[in-house]
Design a protein around this nucleic acid. Structure first.
Lengths: 203, 203
DNA sequence: ACAAATCAATCAAACGTTTGCTAGGTATAC
DNA sequence: GTATACCTAGCAAACGTTTGATTGATTTGT
């Protein structure tokens, strides 16, 4: 019986992305992917020659379909602290909306060290524009600091919180509101703008 | 025939650590571990009840061998800023000296694997003491800030730089010295202590 | 002191299951 | 009729794990 809604390659990849993001290449079986889609594992081989190809294409699609729209913030006529605030909030929201994206990136950084080409592509096609924007902001915020390091720190402060969420919930002091983008962005912004000196702690 | 050099649990774990660091829990088989040690896979079950226990103990050992160096800093009779300085510098040095260590941490954050039991175990047995130490420091540094968030930020600022090293080299503004533990720890400390206000940027 | 019993550490072989993947067939669309 | 999208069935290999036997070292009983 022919299915009423034949699955396209894109459909399959879209379902596979969150699985690979969660458990990595060797942590997901073809049968698991097939089950998530609602088809037989053998049918996957009609669309992809092997598991590796399916994985690479899934990662490619995950990166291609997502694009940050942040550069517009740079040209706004608002105080630079406000730009930072907007920036941070948007990245927080993005992390919540699409957790698979950042998980896949971090997996690629761990697993793709034999294949530097894949990392180069990722840097050029996915991150270059975004990172340049963050660097511009970093320069506006503190021209005396190393822009590369500062940009990485700004993004890292946010990304790390979301990246560690699964295990953070079991660590001391964890609260439900630590997943709230409002709370995290406020924390990050206050840390960036005032450091630890607010309310005279270190005076 | 009794082997001339019976393998202790520690020997096994020491050989298993780099394997798990490179390929993750599901990326390494018991037979691969056994081969790396020079013994039969079945013999592993004389020392460990199952693969998961072996893995958790490997992570524990990778972590425990470094842990005491950090907690001793807390009890030192020095200004709290100096504690932070020591803390950050030592963590930076760990990251560089022992790439397996940092890769394992990175992996643990990601490899939820749907198995919450393992995360819980790792949080309790591996990360709890370390994280409590960072929280104590966070409380000393800024009692008005959320200790959990602040502790995560301190560690994250450092860890993220090393995690992203493979791809950071392809991003704008990257310099060779960005892998120097002195440079990174100075950057992190100045960011934490002064935020972005140093030299009057935001005044 | 010395044999007997126990123990720790290992192995080969095999268990049942899951893995990635293939072959061959069936229904639908054009 | 041919191409497409799917299926059932199954393969060989690898997986985590168990079993049962073997070895030397250690402990114990007398």
């Amino acid at each position: 019986m022919r299915p009423e809604h034949p699955k396209t390659k894109t459909d399959i990849l879209e379902k596979a992305i969150p699985l690979f993001a969660k458990s990595g290449f060797s942590g997901v079986s073809m049968r698991q992917i097939a089950k998530a889609i609602g088809m037989n594992a053998a049918s996957l081989y009609h669309h992809f020659p092997d598991k590796q190809t399916l994985y690479v294409q899934a990662v490619q699609q995950a990166f291609a379909s997502r694009e940050f729209v942040l550069s517009e913030v740079l040209s706004m006529k608002i105080p630079v602290q406000e730009k930072l605030r907007l920036f941070v909030k948007r990245i927080c929201d993005f992390m919540i909306d699409d957790p698979d994206f950042s998980r896949l990136i971090h997996r690629e950084m761990l697993d793709g060290d034999g294949d530097e080409t894949r990392l180069q592509l990722l840097a050029d096609q996915v991150f270059h524009n975004f990172f340049s924007t963050v660097i511009s902001l970093a320069n506006e915020l503190a021209s005396d600091k190393d822009p590369h390091l500062l940009a990485m720190s700004i993004f890292g402060l946010i990304a790390y919180h979301y990246q560690t969420t699964p295990i953070r919930l079991f660590l001391p002091g964890a609260k439900p509101e630590h997943n709230d983008s409002e709370i995290i962005s406020n924390h990050v912004i206050s840390l960036l703008l005032q450091g630890l000196e607010s309310k005279g702690n270190l005076k």
